Amino acid sequence: MVVFSNVRLVEGACNCLADSRFKYNYRNKCDGRDLLGAIYDNSVPCVFFDPQYRGVLDKLAYGNEGVSRGMQRSMLPQMKEDIIKEFIAEISRILIPSGHLFLWVDKFHLCEGVSSWLPANLKIVDMVVWNKQKMGMGYRTRRQCEYLLVVQKRPLRAKGVWAVHDIPDVWEEKVSGDHPHSKPVLLQARLIEAVTNQGDVVVDPAAGSYSILTACQKTGRTFLGGDLVYGAD
């Protein structure tokens, strides 16, 4: 029995915005929850979410990092778990049936588990390990990877929904840029091609370096996203 296909049979809405305050293909400066709240129910096929986690900082009783640990990192508003859950609840609402959330997690939250953040209609179906090819920090092993959870809204299925079948689950891509949490454009572009069609809307409510905007430009998709710090003035 064939369980996969190179053709997507699922379509997203051409216009998912119910609020003219926000623009497509633009760096909206906003609270991501306001942006998500302005999107119609069941209207987008794909969302990327990269929270600014503070779970490990709470675990170690740290405050936000100061100037000595990096000015750019200290500027980013940290997200506690209740805020992350608010984002994911809204993402669940706006995703079309069988739509995908790509959720970036760090090693701490991967090990602690994130299933409690997901409502009943969202389920983790896969994971990609991103080898950044750059050594990071760590008391024991040094961090070189980040983790991208592939989450699908029910009904769970791949055939007719996921159209690219040559993406490895370990992806090597070096990134550069001024943002402290830059993400791999080429990986995200391939994932966008896997779960959307040309012209579909891809949402990123915590856009940071706007790597998803770049990925949308490369793939002919429509970007809808913003950031509290790095949006346009």
Rank of each mutant, 00 (worst) to 15 (best):
V2A: 13
V2H: 07
S5G: 14
N6W: 04
R8Q: 09
R8D: 04
R8T: 09
R8N: 11
V10W: 07
G12A: 15
G12Y: 05
A13G: 00
A13F: 06
C14D: 13
N15V: 08
N15P: 05
L17Y: 05
A18G: 12
S20Q: 13
R27K: 15
K29P: 02
C30H: 01
G37S: 15
G37M: 09
I39Q: 08
Y40E: 14
D41T: 03
D41H: 06
S43F: 07
P45H: 03
F49N: 01
P51D: 01
Q52C: 12
Q52L: 01
R54V: 08
G55S: 11
V56M: 07
D58N: 05
K59F: 11
L60H: 01
L60E: 00
G66V: 01
R69A: 13
R69Q: 10
Q72V: 12
R73Q: 02
R73T: 02
R73K: 10
S74W: 12
P77E: 07
M79E: 05
K80Y: 11
K80R: 13
D82Y: 14
I84S: 03
K85P: 01
F87S: 05
F87T: 09
F87N: 04
I88P: 02
I88T: 06
I88H: 03
A89R: 06
I91L: 10
S92T: 08
I94Q: 04
G99N: 00
H100S: 12
F102T: 06
L103A: 02
W104H: 14
V105N: 10
K107M: 09
F108N: 03
L110E: 03
C111Q: 13
C111H: 12
C111W: 08
S115R: 13
L118K: 08
L118I: 09
P119Y: 09
A120E: 14
N121F: 06
I124E: 11
V125I: 15
M127N: 04
K132C: 05
Q133C: 15
Q133K: 15
M135N: 04
G136C: 09
M137R: 13
G138I: 02
R140T: 12
R142W: 07
R143C: 11
C145S: 15
C145E: 15
E146K: 05
L148F: 11
L149I: 07
L149W: 12
L149K: 13
Q152Y: 02
R154D: 12
P155K: 01
P155E: 02
L156S: 00
R157G: 10
K159V: 01
K159A: 11
W162L: 09
V164F: 09
H165V: 04
D166C: 10
D166G: 08
I167G: 06
V170H: 09
E172M: 14
E173R: 13
E173F: 10
K174F: 13
K174S: 14
G177V: 11
H179M: 05
H181A: 15
H181C: 14
H181Q: 11
S182R: 10
K183Q: 11
V185Q: 05
L187A: 13
L187V: 12
Q188P: 00
Q188I: 03
A189W: 01
R190A: 13
L191K: 03
A194E: 04
N197T: 06
D200P: 02
P205T: 02
A206R: 00
S209C: 08
S209Q: 08
S211W: 01
S211P: 00
I212S: 06
L213S: 01
K218D: 02
K218T: 03
T219A: 02
F223M: 04
L224H: 00
G225Q: 00
G226F: 08
D227Y: 03
L228D: 02
